[in-house]
Design a protein around this nucleic acid. Structure first.
Lengths: 132, 132
DNA sequence: TTAACTCCTGTAGTGGCTACAGGAGCAAGC
DNA sequence: GCTTGCTCCTGTAGCCACTACAGGAGTTAA
């Protein structure tokens, strides 16, 4: 069922997650302790690839490791789907707030940079903008 | 010229920068070592208030401490205005890229959350979205 | 057998703070 | 002059999510 065994290097390549990061995830308990070969090396299988890919996508969406723990619980049925929904909505709202903040910020930076390049302001427009 | 001397607490209140953060800024050399009172306490003046306010606004705009070092150099005339302009433009572009990324992310999260709340997907839509 | 490669553990560093612990200065009231 | 309570001091450690070593050991191909 679980198919071929792969090394940490192969796991890293197949999922796009850094080797050091895989070991880090194991250390903080985001993934279970890997089985070991006779020589003491970590051995992974297709389930591990799926789990790690899941984690990677969740990280790309900006979920924290603690939130991912909850999402993994939902994925394996140990927690209700509505918890995942709540997390996603909460996270989406945070993202929306970030976007609003960044838009304001972008305007401010653009204004300062434009005035500067036009040489309108007496001193440096960037510095001026930061001084009041 | 430099006016009344104030404590670190007053400086913190007037600038909105945490006391611990002020000491941290001194430690990393973002602000010069403060003068000391007879009892060994830090003493600040109006110039320090201005400098720290400048730093605070720059941080709010997302500049890193290293970038702020450069901006402070521009402010005191030790570096050309065009360097500040370049920093602002570079930073603005990074902000724009962030906004684009966050927009995509927001769409993904919204789609997943919407499908979930409508109960369309067989399993959990959030988990589904993370699984492919 | 040897060289090249991958993997191991453990520790420390990143940025930008923040949070203590344990002590000392300082101002006001009694 | 003494106490109380506040602010301040230094030094260290913690946060997040990694990343980067050092120094050693397993593994594979020529």
């Amino acid at each position: 069922m679980s198919g071929a065994e792969i090394t940490i290097g192969a796991l890293s390549e197949q999922t796009g997650v850094n080797i050091e990061t895989v070991r880090y995830y194991e250390r903080i308990g985001l993934i279970p302790p890997a089985h070991r070969s006779a020589g003491g090396r970590r051995v992974f299988d297709a389930d591990d690839v799926r789990r790690l890919s899941f984690i990677r996508r969740a990280r790309q969406l900006g979920f924290s490791t603690d939130e991912i723990r909850s999402l993994l619980d939902v994925a394996k049925g140990a927690r209700a789907c509505k918890d995942a929904h709540a997390l996603a909505v909460k996270h989406r709202d945070a993202v929306r707030a970030s976007i609003r903040d960044l838009r304001r910020l972008e305007r401010t930076l653009t204004e300062a940079a434009d005035r500067c390049s036009k040489g309108v302001s007496p001193g440096c427009a960037i510095v001026e903008a930061l001084s009041h």
